[in-house]
Structure formats: C-alpha cells, structure tokens
C-alpha cells in the first residue's frame, strides 16, 4: 500500500494553474525527486504536502489518512528549506532540540537525541555554535539534523543543496544518500538539478507547467524519456530532423540527412530523432559531418559537428584513442535502442 498518496491534486492561483491534477504514490522508505524547471509546480506540490498551501482540488493521504484537516504543525514532517531557515538566535543544539521540545520530550532524552542527530550529520562538537558562525555546508547539516531528529514520517527537501558550491554539493549528495538509506526515511526532494535528482532518487517525477511528464527510475527517465521535454531536461540531447518510411515486411527506413538505416518505428512521416551525445560514435559510414569545435574536458572530449541534419553534439570518452581534429570530416552512427523517435509537428 502506498505510504503517501497524491490524488488529483490541483492548485490554482487566480486563473493560473500551478499544479494540474497530479497523481503520485510514494512507497515507505522511498526517495522520490520532483524535478523540473522553475515554475513547474514542484515547490507548490511540496508546500501542499507540508500543509503550507491549501489544495484547490484533490486529496493527499499519508499512511491512509486524509491530510486535508491536519494542520502543518501536526503533520510530523521534517522539512529542509532552500535557505535552511535555521533559527538564527538559537545554537545548533537549540535548533535541533526545538522540534523535540514541541513534542515535550523529557530533557535527558532530548539532549541525547540532539547529540545523536548532530553526530549523524557529522557535527559532533558543534552543539553550542550559532548558525551565523557556521559555513553554508554546516548550516545545511544542522537543518538536516533538525528535520531528522523528530523522526519524521516523511522528509521534505526543498532545493536543499542549491546554495552550496559544486564540490560541497557533490559531497553532500553522497552523504544525504547514505543517511537516507541508513535511516530508511521516506524522502521527497524538490530540485531543478537533474544530476542531483539522478544521484539521489529511487524514482524521479519530472514536472513541467504543473503537469507530471514522467515518473520513473533515474535510468528509465534518462534512457527512455517519455517526452521531448524530459529528453531535453534530463541532460543534453541531439534532435535530428528526419523521416520514417515504411518498407516491405513492416520494416521502417529511417532517413537522417544522408544517413539511412532500418529500424522498427511506430510512426511514419517527418520525425525528430533524439540521441544522447555520448551515444553517438564515429564510424566509416553514417551521417556525414565536419568537426567545427573540439573541446578537451579531461575525462572526455566534446565535439560540435556540422551535418546536413543540424549541428550535432558528440561526447567521446578520453580512452587514449586519437580523436578527429577541427575541420576534419567524420561519420556519425548510433544504435537504434539509443534513439527516441517522435513525430515532427513542424513539418507535415
């Protein structure tokens, strides 16, 4: 049975629909990310789960119980805010203890739990520090400890890592994942960063303009995007204009520029063919093009290649083999299973 269930959840502000009748179920212990660009409705969804924003329509159930009439203070959810929202006038320990105080946990028990929570996030010994005297990463950890110490039914993370620098963010991703796996706390993460969503979650919910575009594991959403939006939002992708012709025996012929290959396609006519840059390789024959730029990125090479089907981005691992230079002619090929074919509405 689903632990958290969103049914037909809708939020409108005036005539603007922020969240459009979404359905989502989250299992106990699962880590789910709401991923999308700003304005996609992900934060509003989180705020509705937290109870800070009332629903226009729909129902949210937690462990089978309808949350409509449960006040935010009584939901027992742990939230880590984008700004951390630490109480600046309280020490780290007082911040963490606040939720336990509200639950009237006896002092001795409380102190122990505060110490444990701070130790869990690697801040043992920082009990008496005030937030303003801590680094961004440390403040983040206090916020996490504060949310976890109340043993929340669900941990809600609202862009928790967006204010950290790139290196620290990566470290925190790993740590956050370990903590969540160890505690088994059901977690919902709101983020606009696809790397973060992919690194942390069991499942990703890709949202756009108030709708859910796709729900799936990181690998599924990346490899088999359900829509063009998902394909472009989750990492870079090439979109070649082409055409599908049906030949004898139900075999389709796909034409991209001067590259023709056979494949099994469900549609015919003008199409857009998406291929991830790292799934394109150089060969003797295929889509012909000229290297316009070649950028060395340490562990990989990044190419911009001009073809008659458009400019292609290609990423090749730096495995020691020699790479084509700028100005050289190349041929591009890809495997059928690495493509995502959809009708080209602009043509036809």
């Amino acid at each position: 049975m689903a632990f958290l269930e969103l049914q037909n959840v809708t939020k409108t502000f005036g005539d603007h629909t922020a969240v459009n009748a979404i359905n989502l179920t989250v299992q106990k212990g699962e880590f789910v990310s709401l991923l999308g660009p700003s304005g996609c409705g992900k934060t509003t969804t989180l705020q509705m789960i937290a109870g800070f924003v009332p629903l226009t329509k729909g129902i949210i159930r937690l462990d089978g119980r309808d949350l409509s009439n449960v006040k935010p203070a009584e939901r027992g959810l742990g939230i880590v805010f984008q700004s951390y929202a630490l109480f600046p006038h309280m020490t780290a320990a007082q911040n963490v203890a606040f939720g336990l105080e509200m639950r009237s946990i006896p002092r001795s028990d409380r102190d122990q739990r505060v110490r444990d929570a701070l130790a869990l996030v690697g801040l043992a010994g920082y009990e008496e520090r005030f937030p303003r005297r801590m680094s961004g990463g440390q403040q983040q950890r206090v916020a996490l400890a504060r949310a976890l110490v109340i043993r929340p039914q669900i941990l809600l993370l609202d862009e928790p890592l967006s204010n950290l620098d790139a290196k620290l963010r990566e470290e925190m991703q790993i740590e956050l994942r370990q903590i969540q796996r160890n505690l088994g706390t059901t977690t919902i993460l709101v983020t606009h960063d696809q790397h973060e969503a992919m690194a942390l979650s069991d499942r990703i919910v890709v949202m756009n303009k108030g709708d859910i575009e796709q729900i799936g594991s990181p690998q599924d959403t990346y490899h088999s995007p359900a829509s063009a939006f998902v394909a472009t939002f989750l990492g870079k992708t090439n979109a070649f204009e082409g055409e599908v012709q049906v030949a004898q025996g139900g075999i389709s012929r796909i034409i991209v520029g001067d590259h023709v290959y056979t494949a099994s396609a469900h549609i015919k006519g003008p199409v857009i063919i998406s291929v991830r840059p790292e799934r394109i390789s150089f060969a003797k024959a295929g889509l012909r093009g000229t290297v316009c730029t070649r950028i060395f990125r340490g562990n990989h090479w990044l190419f911009q290649i001009k073809t008659i089907a458009g400019v292609a981005t290609v990423i090749r691992q730096n495995d020691g083999t020699s790479m084509p230079e700028e100005g050289h002619d190349v041929h591009l090929v890809w495997r059928e299973e690495d493509t995502f074919v959809r009708a080209n509405s602009k043509v036809g």
Partner: peptide, 24 residues
C-alpha cells in the same frame, strides 16, 4: 521559511510568535 520550519517541527501559532518571530 524560518517560521514555516518552526511550524513543521510542531510549534503552535503562539509558540512560533514567541519563540521565533518575536526574537527575529
């Protein structure tokens, strides 16, 4: 969101005001 944090941790309106809003 500082007040929201206090609410999410279970603080009632009056407690939020006295312990968080007022000091801030």
């Amino acid at each position: 969101s500082i007040e929201q944090a206090a609410i999410s941790l279970g603080a009632r309106d009056w407690v939020v005001f006295r312990r968080v809003t007022l000091p801030l």
